[in-house]
């Protein structure tokens, strides 16, 4: 991978010119390419084959699309699929809305702004497992602080993590609690980057605060919105550690996602099926995120 240079066109000297070394040598790619190629790309490509096999790590039997058929036949696996998309949609939707609102609040002249920014952002840095365990305790149906507090007001709190209809949403809420700080920070960066001239022009045109938001802030922070949506949507589709720390996919299979199914099948020794789960997740991300990215970026191009 040296500089593209044609054969010399100086006929008097004939032959090829010596190629000088580029100041930006290709071998700088080598260490990263080696690690990335062997430990990320190679397994990703291998997964395409192994997902079509019954596999014990030592030998594999080709069984065609059986693993995938199973994925779409077994109700608990199908539920995992549905849950994954639901979880991603809920978390990214809430992060966009709350992140935007918090960012608006935290870019306005508000008392305690520095403190508020810190406090909203800090959970992003804390161990997911730790957060999961803490909220499992707080969401305990009878003894948990959340329901005890609700009881003070005479409200009978739900079984956050034990009610099969609620478990997934409860975990999603904790995910939002932990991740909204990042969304906020991205929005803050986006909003701060909007030139003040626009607001001044809008003010001269007599815009109200609401119109300011609607016609200046919202359209001009669209790149931030795209980022938040894509980032949290991908994160939501891939989510594993929080669900595993809080419900292990339970009760039953009520809060299973593809990532937790992958782990369960791996533990159970169904390596082919587990890998098929990986491929399903991979395809799911492909068919959801790529169009989403294109959609968000096209809208952006309109500005």
């Amino acid at each position: 991978m040296t500089v593209l240079s044609e054969a010399g066109s100086a006929p008097t000297h004939g032959g090829r010119r010596a190629i000088r070394r580029s100041p930006y040598p290709g071998w700088f790619f080598l260490p990263a390419a080696l690690i990335y190629g062997v430990l990320f790309l190679a397994p990703t490509f291998a997964s395409l084959y192994f997902s079509l096999t019954r596999w014990t790590l030592f030998n594999s039997t080709f069984i065609g699309l059986d693993n995938f058929a199973q994925f779409f036949r077994e109700p608990f696996l199908v539920q995992g699929l549905v849950n994954t998309v639901l979880y991603a949609a809920i978390t990214s939707g809430l992060k966009v809305v709350l992140g935007m609102l918090l960012a608006l609040l935290l870019t306005s002249a508000i008392m305690g702004r520095g403190y508020l920014r810190s406090v909203v952002f800090f959970p992003v840095l804390v161990s997911t497992v730790g957060v999961g365990i803490t909220f499992t305790v707080l969401m305990h149906p009878t003894q948990g602080m959340i329901n005890e507090t609700l009881a003070l007001f005479g409200i009978k709190g739900p079984g956050w993590l034990v009610d099969p209809r609620l478990a997934l949403f409860s975990v999603a809420l904790v995910d939002v609690w932990k991740g909204v700080g990042l969304a906020t920070v991205i929005y803050i960066a986006g909003i701060v980057a909007i030139p003040k001239d626009y607001y001044e022009a809008a003010r001269i045109d007599g815009a109200t605060r609401w119109q300011n938001f609607l016609y200046v802030t919202l359209p001009l922070s669209r790149p931030a919105t795209a980022t938040v949506i894509i980032l949290s949507f991908i994160g939501g589709l891939r989510t594993f550690d929080l669900i595993w720390a809080m419900t292990r996919g339970g009760p039953g299979f009520a809060s299973d996602t593809i990532a937790s199914v992958i782990y369960k099948q791996y533990q159970a020794g169904f390596y082919g099926l587990s890998t098929a789960g990986n491929v399903v997740l991979f395809v799911l991300i492909g068919i959801l995120v790529v169009p989403l990215t294109m959609f968000l970026n096209r809208k952006q191009g309109h500005e």
Binding site: V3, S5, E6, G8, S9, A10, T12, H13, R17, A18, I19, R20, R21
Partner: peptide, 19 residues
């Protein structure tokens, strides 16, 4: 910049491919 053709002579040395 790479020289595509011709000669560059500095002093009395052809320098097209000299660092």
């Amino acid at each position: 910049e790479e020289i595509t053709g011709g000669d560059l002579i500095i002093g009395d040395k052809r320098c097209n491919d000299v660092e």
